[in-house]
């Protein structure tokens, strides 16, 4: 029986723990990002060079984006949300490398990211508003909305996860099919499109996570903000 292309390939096992290809790729991405960060931030100057300027522009841009959505101290959320964006971008684009499968094209990684966002929303919400205040926000505007709000908490995270997984996975499938059917250089435009989609999906995932966290922190109804990204 042909294994499902959606199933993660187990490369090795550490006791009962299977080490799958997405995990290994993620480790490689982690290593690359950590090394690149350490090298690029090793000699930061007051007068930035080109590399430092790009780095600062990226960090400040992410921070401003978070600040525009949350309207609070963005620096507190920068490590989590910034890493979310950088990791998803890198993971999405890693699929363009020959022989590499994007971790986000397998279900486990989007699920893990969705779970992280899910629990982060509640963590930051409870921390900002207290447990009682945060739980009370689910019964607003009416108590009858409580089941729907609880369901929405799950479904929006689920949609977040599925959106990322579906876009990346479908892009890789399309490219793989075109390569199989048409030849080596035909899918290049599709790869460029996949590159764009990978960045856009990372941006959407990160912004939606920011909107969820911002709504949890401030207590605003995030439906309007979320609707423009879904």
């Amino acid at each position: 029986m042909q294994p499902s292309p959606l199933t993660s390939t187990v490369l090795l096992r550490l006791g009962p723990v299977p080490i799958t290809q997405p995990v290994v790729t993620t480790w490689a991405i982690m290593l690359a990002l950590a090394v690149a960060s350490a090298v690029s931030t090793r000699r930061l100057q007051m007068r930035p060079g080109p590399t430092q300027a790009v780095l600062e522009t990226l960090i400040v841009g992410i921070e401003q984006q978070i600040a525009e959505v949350i309207r609070k101290d963005a620096r507190r959320f920068l490590p989590m949300l910034g890493t979310l964006f950088l990791f998803i971008v890198t993971a999405n684009l890693s699929g363009l490398l020959p022989g590499v499968t994007a971790p986000t094209s397998r279900l486990e990684t989007p699920v893990a990211l969705g779970l992280i966002v899910f629990f982060s929303v509640h963590y930051f919400g409870i921390r900002a508003r207290g447990l009682r205040g945060y739980l009370a926000s689910f019964a607003k505007p009416k108590l009858i909305m409580l089941p729907l709000n609880l369901l929405a908490e799950v479904t929006r995270t689920f949609s977040l996860m599925v959106r990322l997984f579906g876009n990346v996975m479908s892009g890789e499938f399309v490219i793989a099919l075109v390569v199989a059917l048409a030849g080596l250089f035909v899918p290049v435009p599709l790869m460029v499109l996949e590159l764009l989609i990978g960045v856009i999906q990372a941006y959407i995932f990160s912004v939606l996570a920011t909107v969820f966290i911002g709504a949890a922190v401030s207590g605003d109804d995030d439906t309007s903000k979320e609707s423009q990204w879904t």
């Binding site: 299977p18 995990v23 690029s40 931030t41 960090i59 890493t83 979310l84 990791f87 779970l115 992280i116």
Partner: peptide, 28 residues
């Protein structure tokens, strides 16, 4: 297991980038 490892990986990555990227850049 993969979900769990990816979650842990992400948490580790958050710490690594916070240590080697965000903090130095924000400090400067």
């Amino acid at each position: 297991w993969t979900v769990f490892l990816q979650t842990v990986n992400f948490a580790v990555l958050v710490w690594l980038l916070h240590r080697f990227l965000y903090r130095p850049v924000l400090q400067v």
